[in-house]
Design a protein around this nucleic acid. Structure first.
Lengths: 237, 237
DNA sequence: TCTCATTATCGACTCTTCGTCATTTTTTGA
DNA sequence: TCAAAAAATGACGAAGAGTCGATAATGAGA
């Protein structure tokens, strides 16, 4: 009896994964507007009603994809945060993880962008929204922890009234903004920005230098560290 | 004959503006997904066909709104760039203009976000896309000009191989990312980021400090300058 | 003022998609 | 084997995008 239930449940989750996988591919090909429940059903060779047994509407599918994305990044951040070294080096490792995430899972990042700008929130379930917030919060905490380590070890200072999270917010904004612009602006090269990812690294390092987070980027080869971390993170599979 | 044509043309552009105004309001109320051509037509008391004489599809309306947004910001940047003072102070003025833009025209910024993440590009006309790129490029040039002024006056240095535009890209990403996250994340306060706009200012100043752009933010009250610029820019009407 | 060609406007129509739900099919366990 | 429960189906209603032939307004010339 127990095994029967689990077999059913296994089938269910497996089908759910198939739906999500298909939705991801579709999203890649035809974009958010082209994503259609009818087409998903047809491609799955299931009826529409069955698809709706898994996800109450289209937005739930999108948000489920976004949840996977945030979960994936959270895992990568958790791993990067344990990189050996001083606080600033660990911060560089986080930066490398963020880069690796976008490179390794471009669709994940694209979904996150969609979720952050379309008004899909109202139609989605409370749970998934909370999951999203939870992942976001955990990520903030992880990176904030590194900042707090640095603060307690005297590697950097913050002005009175500003929190470790404020600093993290700056890094987060910089990264999210940079990749969004990269993926949506057609005229970067024409305007003298030949290697935006390199420009992002520079800005990031200069921001941390501005916080006087030692050792400064002029004294350590952080790009080298980042390349090393990335290689390590992208290694398996 | 000439006057007849101009009257007709005036009527035409006026109606076009009415459509855009209406679309903007609708976007505010019901979001991108709720924006409907039928509803625009009904509200305008014109038939759908007439609306389609102005805009070949829904995406064109969105992009037209985005064009207005970029045009507005360009004007604000042009004005801010002439603020008297050294290069770094003028940079602070640009930052203030960016803030003022989002505060004064939140809908403009929201439209920009939509355009940057939905896949509406394929359906839109070449001209409007070019206009978009042109505004973007001009903005980059204006801010890049301030950086070049600073470089030539020895107020800051850049590593070899990095351009003034690379620096601007960092600021641009930081700002765009920050406002996107602010408008889409429900859990900033819960995670210790009580005043994200203040956090953005800090990050921005620290980034410029990291570029060693003098005078440093520790020596000048740039937030005070920014408040002053903003007051000036938001003054008229 | 009247005529007629040109231009503008209209809205019914097609097509597509979302989401529902009564009906049919399959599974389960006695 | 069989009846009840669960799962799957797809026809259907509603709503929106975009088209196009029919209709109305305009205005230049007679």
């Amino acid at each position: 009896m127990a095994t029967v239930l689990t077999r059913k449940e296994r089938e269910r989750t497996e089908r759910e994964n198939r739906i999500l996988q298909l939705a991801r591919e579709m999203l890649q090909e035809v974009g958010y507007l082209g994503l259609s429940m009818d087409r998903i059903a047809a491609e799955m060779e299931y009826s529409k009603g069955t698809i709706y047994q898994h996800f109450r509407n289209k937005e739930e599918i999108i948000l489920a994809l976004a949840n996977e994305a945030l979960e994936t990044r959270l895992a990568m951040f958790e791993r990067a945060a344990t990189w050996p070294g001083d606080s600033r080096t660990r911060m560089a490792a986080i930066g490398a993880a963020a880069e690796a995430f976008v490179e390794r899972y471009p669709m994940h990042f694209a979904v996150e962008q969609i979720v952050r700008s379309s008004s899909i929130w109202e139609k989605t379930s409370e749970e998934r929204r909370q999951f999203m917030d939870a992942c976001e919060g955990r990520c903030l905490q992880i990176v904030g922890g590194i900042v707090r380590d640095g603060l307690s070890q005297g590697d950097l200072e913050l002005p009175p009234g500003r929190s470790a999270e404020d600093l993290v917010f700056g890094l987060w904004s910089l990264n999210f903004g940079a990749y969004t612009i990269i993926s949506s602006s057609g005229s970067l090269k024409e305007n003298g920005i030949t290697d935006p990812v390199e420009a992002l690294r520079l800005s990031q390092n200069r921001m941390l230098d501005g916080h006087n987070w030692r050792p400064l980027s002029s004294d350590v080869d952080y790009p080298g560290v980042m390349d090393q971390v990335k290689r390590e993170m992208l290694k398996d599979e």
